[in-house]
Structures are given as structure tokens and as C-alpha cells.
Design a protein around this nucleic acid. Structure first.
Lengths: 190, 190
DNA sequence: AAAAAAACTTGAACTACTTCAAGAAATCAG
DNA sequence: CTGATTTCTTGAAGTAGTTCAAGTTTTTTT
């Protein structure tokens, strides 16, 4: 369903039929298998990914060799390494499918030309990225002000289905505590 | 110097003289005294602030009544509560001048009409906010992977002048450790 | 220049979390 | 359906940081 992206865009701006045609001609759906990587540390990230369905995460490998999830992306989210994408520098991150996932992958040159042809899209990406930034501001707030247990319960209340869908150790690292500690929180042993 | 903003914009897009006139007619410089607030928790944030000179921080008051700095803004940065701004909801944050600061404050209705009049500005804000998001991704990475001492030294290396300029307890909370612990790091007692 | 306020330092006691190691349960591939 | 892999659990020991309280230094105000 390439229309998922078009629908998402049209939540924020309105498109002429001709513009829809142009966009459609530029995008195609790719399937990413569970555990497959679309970006690895050291590569330059040259693509923005719009998630149609499934789940993707951005993670790093820390100094002890453990994976830490920094971000999840689900339906209707964009995911990329913005710094690597904008500055053409090697990425610090891995981006990997958590489930079998369908994305619309847009290469930078294609997206750039699309933005020139349909400048209205600048507005769409401006709004989407400002909102993502807002979400990040809240994330930092939660990380700073809540205990591990509070972060777990808060996340669990906000996204109960998501917690079912995704391995616990990924959620634990996303919330910045160990998988073992999460297990104890869930068992009420803390 | 209202031109600081115009210069910043022109790093990312080019402007016609007529467009510069329009922008200039919409903006004015405000002075904010050290410790003065431009946003308090509970207020709806209806303004974006471009910092011409000085320093501003966004902070919260945590459950123990202590201030925690979530973000600093300096010359050529925009600062606002994006979530409150976009969704018209009460803010979770305080935004306060750390030093006497000059900002260009743009109210939402004015900015919206400016974006309609000069759609090119969408591109400017799109790029700026994607870059800010990228910086935030790196911030989360550092918070997750470095020890308190590493975070201090890293920050100190990246922004040595800044560390001189701003009270230590604000930097400590920005790096997510206590002011006392920072003092011990600096003294090498850790 | 003095007084007041703000910022920084220090050590001792504490605690929220990690790490390790091993086993149990669930899921996946053939 | 079976074995292999991945994920989750549990307890014991350890530690990176916090908290508290008091004193010192620096900055600001008058």
C-alpha cells in the first residue's frame, strides 16, 4: 500500500492529483525481513524510510558489546539517521527490522528532487520533524525524571499492544535499564 | 541585530530582497534578562524563539523539587516547546534565560502567515528541525552509552567555553548527574 | 566595601540499579 | 514434532551514582 504514505502526507497538506502522480512515480514498497539491517554503523545513511507496517528500531552497540535500542519506529513513522543523512558522514547507528516490515525507502537524491518539484512537501516534512522533535523532548523528560519502574509502567500504559509485540530486552534498553531489572519489575520483585 | 536570523536563514535557502523585507517587517528583537522566564509549566507555548546572543535553557522541576535542565540554546538556535506549540497544549517545561539574552520571538500566527507568504521558509525550518532531531539522537546515544565522567569530559571537550559561561549545576543536570558528583569529577575524586 | 545571595566542594551513608551465572520458558526452523 | 535458538527469570554480590548536611568560595547587589 503505497497509499499509506500519501494518506499520511495529506493529513498535513493537500495534494493535487498531478502531485499525487508525481509522488507515486517516485516511491515503491520494499519488504524488510525480521532482523534484517537497513543501516549499519559506519555506513553513510542515504535514505529515509517511511514505515507502512511492521516495526523498526535504531540501536547502537555499547562499549560492553550490548545492544541498546535508541528508537522504535512503527506504522506511519519516518526513520533515518538524520545526522548521517544531512552531513554525509558515517552513521553511529544500526537500523534493523524488529518484525517483517514494509517500508517506502526514498533515496536522498530522489527526495531532494521531489522536494524541488513539489515544494509543498517541505511543509509536510517540516511539520513531521518538528513533531518528532517534540516527542524527543518528552522522551528526555521521562528519562530524566522517572525511575526505572515508573518509566516501565508509563510506557506500558501508553503502548500496551506494543509491549506485547516486541522482545522485552529491546524495550528495557529503550527505557534505559537492564533486561534483568525489567523482569524483576514485571514480577513485582522490586 | 535582526540580521542574525536573516543570515542564518540564508545559510540554507536564498532570499529575494522583497522576501527579506517581508521577513524584516515581521520580526523584532526582544531582550530577556538573566533568570527571566519566557515559558512556564502549564502555559501554552505559542512562540518560537531564535537566539541572537546569550543563552537560554529549557528545564523541568522534578518530583523532588529540583530543577533539571533538558536543553540549552545559544546563538543561532531556535528554542520552543514543540509539543505545546503544535498541539496547543500546556507545556511541561520552563524556558528561562541563563544570561541576558537577545531573541527574535515569533508568535505562531505571524510565523504561520510568513510561511504562507514565503513557502521557501518551510524548507529552512524543515532542515533546521531535522538537524536538531539528529543532534537529539546523538544526545540520547551519549546519555545511554557513556558514564557520568565520560559525559562530562566529552561535553567539556566539545564546548569548553560554554562550560565556563554557565553554572555547573545546570550542566550537571543537563548531563544527568548531580552537581555534587560533577564537583567530584572535576576534583578528580572519583 | 559590605552584606547577601548564589554557586561550588567535601565526606559519609545510602540506594537504585547492574552484572553475572545458571536455569526455565517460549519461539522458530526444518 | 524435535532440536536449536532466542528470550525471560531469579538471586546474590557489586557499584556508579545520589542524598544530606555543612562549610567555603564566588558573584551580585547596594
Amino acid at each position: 500500500m503505497r497509499t499509506a504514505l500519501l494518506q499520511h502526507i495529506q493529513k498535513f497538506i493537500s495534494l493535487e492529483p498531478s502531485e499525487i502522480d508525481i509522488i507515486e512515480s517516485c516511491i515503491s514498497l520494499s519488504k524488510i525481513k525480521k532482523k534484517e539491517h537497513i543501516l549499519k554503523e559506519g555506513q553513510v545513511c542515504n535514505t529515509m524510510y517511511f514505515i507502512v507496517n511492521g516495526c523498526i528500531r535504531q540501536y547502537i552497540i555499547n562499549s560492553k558489546g550490548a545492544e541498546q535500542t535508541l528508537q522504535f519506529g512503527i506504522e506511519n513513522w519516518w526513520i533515518t539517521d538524520q545526522l548521517s543523512y544531512h552531513n554525509h558522514i558515517p552513521s553511529h547507528f544500526y537500523i534493523q527490522a524488529v518484525e517483517n516490515t514494509e517500508v517506502i525507502a526514498i533515496e536522498k537524491p530522489i527526495l531532494e528532487s521531489l522536494l524541488v518539484e513539489i515544494p509543498k512537501l517541505e511543509r509536510y516534512f517540516r511539520i513531521v520533524s518538528q513533531k518528532s522533535f517534540g516527542a524527543m523532548q518528552m522522551r528526555i523528560k521521562f528519562l530524566f525524571t522517572m525511575s526505572a519502574e515508573e518509566r516501565y509502567h508509563h510506557f506500558n500504559n501508553q503502548f500496551p499492544e506494543f509491549v506485547q509485540r516486541v522482545p522485552q530486552y529491546m524495550i528495557a534498553s529503550y527505557l534505559d535499564f537492564s533486561a534483568e531489572f525489567m523482569s524483576k519489575i514485571r514480577a513485582g520483585k522490586v
